[in-house]
Simulated assay, not measured.
Amino acid sequence: MEKHVHIISFDVPYPVDHGGYFDLFYKLVALYQQGIRIHLHCFEHKRSQQEELEQYCAEVFYYPRQCGHKGFSHKLPYIVASRTNAELEERLLKDSHPILLEGVHCTYLLQDERFNSRKMVLRLHNVEYKYYKQLFHSSHSLFKKMYYLNESRLLKQYEESIANKALVLAVSEQDSNTYRKEFGAKQVATLPVFLPFSEISAPEGVGCFCLYHGNLSVNENEEAAIWLIKKVFNDLKIPLVIAGKHPSPRLQRIANKYGNACLVADPSEQEMQDMIGKAQINILPSFNVTGVKLKLLNALFNGRHCLVNEATVQSTGLESACHIGNNATAFKSQIVQLYRQPFAEEEIRLRKTLLLSTFDNKRNAQRLIQWLF
């Protein structure tokens, strides 16, 4: 008998043009390959409708996100209140298929009594209140700081209120533990992210530059890039490439002041993967300790040496595959040491042991199916 599932996505999950969409899209592919009939519901804002999704889904529906003042609520976080839609709710009520909620963003249904007896699974991408608290600390705009702080406050109350209304599948043990300990969640498990990578493609030998990559329109990523330029590479005679989407004029100005820094704006997916493979060191400091860093996994599957701080790898189990430093001096020292050090077969073997058994899309899809049905 056919198995059907509704998946509610906080955004259109294709193209996969930065880390936040890896899990969304490749989960669809993996479930489709297991014979699941997917009814996909996407909230649409800045990303257009995509025919590619119809290859994997029985149906794809799009709903406008209620942006600006229409999406604000005194009681609900903006990321939730802006993703409510009566048409979606009526459509879901026409059958009894299980519902996979992609992110806290899509959990408004958990407040609706009509769905009390429905099988619901929440895919937790972040402990959102912590993520927004960290955005508050990294933002320079007073308006944004006020928004992030208020959203974090609302999210903490909201996440606690929904923690026992669905099975929660977190992307990391750390996030699972937060929901258990802080919110008293009873049904929580960890399900690794779904990835496009099925083998370690990291090249042996020596690359020719250091690389920081990420969505540069995100405050935290911009701050990490500026920290690397000003505090780490300021007196090193080693080239640093900063690559990613939508760099700000501020970041462009700062990069232009340093002769060893090069900014690559809006590279294609292929160009980005090419840079990850050619770099000698993928350098990925983070100021955010929630979720899983998809750019780190990309670098571990496809790049040579990875240099990170503890926040990037905390509670991921990936520490042994990375070089770790926690201040600018430690980063400088590691960079000088690693820049001429060939990336060797033994490191590839270590990554195979650490990564391939955990990030197995087929096995993880089968686990998800058991939870859904």
Score class of each variant (00 low, 15 high):
residue 1 M to F: 06
residue 2 E to L: 05
residue 3 K to V: 05
residue 10 F to T: 02
residue 12 V to M: 09
residue 13 P to T: 07
residue 13 P to V: 11
residue 13 P to M: 09
residue 17 D to L: 03
residue 19 G to F: 04
residue 24 L to M: 15
residue 32 Y to L: 01
residue 33 Q to T: 01
residue 62 Y to H: 05
residue 64 P to I: 00
residue 66 Q to Y: 02
residue 67 C to Y: 08
residue 74 H to D: 13
residue 75 K to G: 03
residue 75 K to V: 06
residue 76 L to A: 06
residue 78 Y to V: 04
residue 84 T to F: 01
residue 91 R to Y: 01
residue 100 L to T: 06
residue 101 L to V: 01
residue 102 E to T: 04
residue 103 G to N: 11
residue 104 V to E: 09
residue 105 H to A: 12
residue 108 Y to E: 11
residue 109 L to P: 03
residue 109 L to C: 04
residue 109 L to Y: 07
residue 114 R to M: 03
residue 115 F to V: 02
residue 117 S to C: 09
residue 119 K to L: 11
residue 122 L to V: 15
residue 126 N to R: 09
residue 131 Y to I: 07
residue 132 Y to M: 11
residue 134 Q to Y: 09
residue 134 Q to V: 00
residue 138 S to F: 05
residue 139 S to Q: 05
residue 139 S to E: 12
residue 142 L to H: 10
residue 144 K to V: 00
residue 148 Y to M: 06
residue 149 L to E: 14
residue 150 N to S: 13
residue 152 S to D: 12
residue 154 L to T: 07
residue 154 L to E: 02
residue 157 Q to K: 15
residue 158 Y to W: 11
residue 160 E to C: 13
residue 160 E to N: 12
residue 164 N to G: 09
residue 166 A to G: 03
residue 167 L to P: 00
residue 167 L to G: 01
residue 170 A to E: 04
residue 171 V to E: 07
residue 175 D to K: 10
residue 175 D to S: 09
residue 177 N to E: 15
residue 180 R to M: 10
residue 180 R to A: 07
residue 183 F to G: 05
residue 187 Q to D: 15
residue 189 A to S: 13
residue 193 V to G: 03
residue 193 V to D: 08
residue 194 F to V: 02
residue 199 E to C: 12
residue 200 I to A: 08
residue 205 G to K: 11
residue 206 V to K: 15
residue 208 C to Y: 07
residue 208 C to W: 04
residue 210 C to S: 13
residue 212 Y to M: 06
residue 217 S to I: 00
residue 218 V to D: 09
residue 218 V to M: 12
residue 225 A to V: 01
residue 225 A to C: 08
residue 231 K to R: 13
residue 232 V to C: 07
residue 232 V to G: 07
residue 239 P to C: 01
residue 247 P to H: 12
residue 250 R to A: 05
residue 250 R to G: 00
residue 255 A to E: 09
residue 256 N to A: 15
residue 259 G to I: 00
residue 260 N to E: 03
residue 262 C to P: 00
residue 262 C to K: 14
residue 265 A to G: 06
residue 269 E to G: 05
residue 272 M to Q: 12
residue 273 Q to G: 01
residue 276 I to E: 08
residue 280 Q to S: 06
residue 281 I to Q: 07
residue 284 L to I: 14
residue 285 P to M: 06
residue 285 P to N: 11
residue 286 S to F: 01
residue 287 F to K: 10
residue 289 V to Q: 12
residue 291 G to A: 04
residue 294 L to P: 04
residue 297 L to R: 08
residue 301 F to D: 04
residue 302 N to R: 14
residue 304 R to S: 02
residue 305 H to S: 03
residue 306 C to D: 04
residue 311 A to T: 06
residue 311 A to N: 14
residue 311 A to H: 14
residue 315 S to E: 14
residue 317 G to E: 06
residue 318 L to V: 00
residue 323 H to F: 12
residue 329 T to D: 13
residue 336 V to Y: 06
residue 342 P to S: 11
residue 343 F to I: 03
residue 344 A to S: 14
residue 347 E to S: 09
residue 347 E to T: 08
residue 347 E to K: 14
residue 351 R to I: 02
residue 352 K to T: 01
residue 358 T to N: 05
residue 367 R to T: 11
residue 368 L to N: 06
